[in-house]
């Protein structure tokens, strides 16, 4: 058999491969543009040594805050070996931005069963925005090794139905974990 036929068959296969990869990329690019999707990528620096003293991540500012436009911002700190605060209420079906940073080592979290996922790298503020459609408690484990206590580092994200979503006069909302 002549070598040209082999090369031709390989080229036909390259065409199939290119079509398959292109199809995937088209789906990714189309949905990314249509929904303005992007992974948490805000490249915002913060001094891990002083974040508890002043600024956005002091204790009084942590937790859930309803904004004037009805969206919600959740601020928390990931530290060895806990999330502060440990219970995070969010409203069902509304855009929620989670802003998180670390004063010590690398952490991360996923809210189980959702697309809420980020690394938490000391020196940077991670921010992600998503919506939660399933009311109830969702476990939120630390998903990056941060020391021997890592496995016990969990928070709970509580998705609250709209009718039960009653923030205080300052737009603040808190929740308690039942032991």
């Amino acid at each position: 058999m002549d070598e040209k036929r082999i090369v031709r068959s390989e080229l036909r296969w390259v065409f199939v491969v290119a079509a398959a990869v292109t199809l995937m990329l088209v789906v990714i690019v189309a949905t990314t543009l249509a929904n303005a999707l992007h992974p948490p990528s805000n490249v915002e620096t913060i001094d891990p040594a002083t974040l508890h003293i002043a600024g956005e991540f002091t204790e009084a500012n942590l937790g859930t805050q309803e904004n004037a436009d009805g969206t919600v911002t959740v601020r928390l700190i990931a530290t060895q070996y806990a999330f502060v605060p440990r219970c995070l209420p969010v409203p069902e079906g509304r855009p929620v931005s989670i802003r998180v940073t670390s004063p010590d080592v690398i952490h991360g979290f996923i809210v189980a069963g959702t697309n809420a996922n980020t690394m938490v790298v000391p020196g940077f503020v991670a921010e992600l925005t998503t919506e939660f459609d399933e009311p109830g408690d969702h476990l939120m484990p630390c998903h990056e090794y941060c020391g021997l206590g890592h496995s016990n580092m969990w928070a709970v994200l509580r998705v609250v139905p709209e009718e039960e979503w009653i923030p205080d006069a300052n737009g603040r909302m808190t929740c308690e974990l039942v032991p």
Partner: peptide, 12 residues
Amino acid sequence: YLLVFLPRGPVN
């Protein structure tokens, strides 16, 4: 992509 990822909510 279409039946598991996208229904879980936007990633912005």
